[in-house]
Design a protein around this nucleic acid. Structure first.
Lengths: 113, 113
DNA sequence: ATTATATATCGCAATATTACGATAAATAAT
DNA sequence: ATTATTTATCGTAATATTGCGATATATAAT
């Protein structure tokens, strides 16, 4: 995160920003959307889905787990992941359903730059 | 973002992950929460609120603007910022109202590590 | 026991982020 | 015109993130 002054923020802001940060990478968001669609996955499912090495997928899954977004259950040699919180599922489908429609220059006529 | 393979994701995943990424820093989330509370701010308001230099606050405001989360309107020597999308406000208050309750180890008894 | 399968971790290189002071730019006030 | 005031940008150093191959670990199958 660069050189963030992590001690200067409230715990709730820190926790919530960690959740957003975890969702703020396209690979991890794609994993979450896969879970919204299919319910569960194992690491290999995502390896087949995204153009990343197995080690990289595993790292992304760990980060989602650390942020509390997914949880994993060991099942034989594999680990079955799912969304850890029903609220999160609701939030994400809500966000997806909304027309975010964010043009890169939202207000060129009234903004500084 | 390190070495992300940015060409391998759908535009919607990329856009949405950029929004999350922008919210994924405590200073920027604190700015957004300030805007939810007060409606508007100028750069100096946030400089008084957070323990960061003016240059750093300005950079964070630019990033929120680039992600389409806030917009700014020039007013004299200052720039008045506000949330750019009513939906976003709704999403954020929703998220804040939900008991996210994300323990760091959500499922130690069933997880790999 | 050996081999196959699945996931996690290590070590490294490339890149991105963060923060700061200094400075530029642009309007407002005297 | 000069001086404040406010925000944006530049340059730089410190740190974090990302991705990969290689390897470790752990269960399942033969």
């Amino acid at each position: 995160m660069g050189v963030t002054k992590i001690d200067s923020y409230s715990p709730s802001v820190l926790t919530l920003s960690e959740v957003f940060k975890a969702l703020g990478h396209p690979a991890r968001l794609a994993i979450v959307q896969y879970l919204i669609d299919k319910g569960t996955c194992i690491c290999g499912d995502i390896v087949d889905e995204l153009p990343l090495a197995q080690a990289s997928i595993s790292r992304h899954l760990q980060e989602l787990k650390n942020a509390g977004i997914i949880k994993g259950q060991i099942s034989g040699t594999s680990v079955c992941y799912c969304l850890s919180d029903a609220h999160l599922n609701a939030i994400l489908t809500l966000i997806n359903s909304i027309n975010l429609s964010i043009p890169k220059s939202c207000c060129d006529d009234e903004c500084t730059s």
